[in-house]
């Protein structure tokens, strides 16, 4: 009963955040404009010079684009919370008999919905530039599911950072320090095998690589000419991705909740 009530409170807060996306559409436009530019840039400009054995680069590219898009989408959790912290609305929430968790649950949930919307837009973009799904609908759905699950878990990490810095501007700068390496020192845009040794190890164990490879395999965007690197996460990308999701949630849900309490009790 109490849990249901808490979820209902979270839904009310999520609805509030989604109304903002509807009313200030710049947010959605900007969170899709950049990845669309990336698709065009890599598909038509850089793509010609990147060779992937046994397949067209655009087929290879899209799973990486999806991963990048949802990671960037998850940063909205941090900036959104940091912004709320500067406003009086949190005091209103805290004076109400609502679940304490609702602000964070609502925030991460609305960003999940936003990410689902963005991933659909990106899939359509992919289809337009020549990307195709070569697997069953169920597998394709599983790919989307893993991308969104990972983004959801990542949202909690962003929530923690957003509550730590408590200023949307600082958050945007701080999160890039974090988000650039995790997105690009990976197999998102190139094969990790082609990276220099040091970076290659980082890329192979980077959670984003596992997620990207899981999506690539589930969409059927791989060729028999490629064998995944001989490290456990890339041999079992689906399992590894789900493992990372659990690890992220276990670490960052408590951290974010703890930081929320600290940030508001002043």
């Amino acid at each position: 009963m109490k849990l249901l009530q808490a979820l209902a409170d979270g839904a009310v807060v999520a609805k509030r955040n989604l109304i903002k996306i509807k009313r200030v559409p710049d947010l959605l436009v900007f969170s899709t404009a950049a990845p669309i530019m990336f698709v065009l840039l890599f598909a038509y400009v850089f793509g010609g010079s990147i060779q992937i054995p046994g397949m067209d680069y655009r087929e290879f590219l899209m799973a990486g684009i999806f991963a990048q898009t949802v990671l960037f989408g998850a940063t909205i959790t941090g900036s959104g919370l940091a912004e709320d912290m500067t406003k009086g609305i949190i005091d209103r929430f805290r004076s109400l008999p609502m679940a304490r968790s609702a602000v964070l649950v609502g925030r991460t949930t609305s960003d999940l919905v936003n990410n689902a919307l963005v991933i659909v837009i990106m899939m359509i973009t992919g289809l337009i530039v020549g990307w195709r799904i070569h697997s069953s609908p169920l597998e394709a759905l599983a790919a989307v599911g893993i991308l969104l699950l990972f983004a959801y878990a990542f949202s909690w990490a962003m929530a923690w950072i957003g509550l730590l810095v408590r200023s949307p501007e600082v958050f945007n700068n701080a999160s890039f320090i974090f988000i650039f390496p995790i997105t690009y020192i990976a197999n998102t845009f190139v094969q990790s095998e082609n990276l220099p040794a040091g970076l290659r190890h980082v890329a192979e164990w980077n959670p984003v690589s596992a997620v990207t490879l899981a999506a690539r395999e589930l969409f059927g965007n791989t060729s028999p000419l490629q064998t995944p690197p001989d490290v456990w996460p890339l041999q079992h990308p689906v399992l590894a991705s789900l493992g990372w999701v659990v690890v992220f949630l276990l670490i960052f849900v408590p951290l974010a909740n703890y930081q929320y309490k600290r940030a508001v009790a002043r």
């Binding site: 509030r16 109304i19 903002k20 009313r23 406003k87 009086g88 609305i89 005091d91 209103r92």
Partner: peptide
């Protein structure tokens, strides 16, 4: 019920 020193309303709603 509380109405704080700075109006706690959501601008986008």
């Amino acid at each position: 019920g509380l109405s704080g020193q700075y109006a706690a309303v959501d601008d986008n709603l």
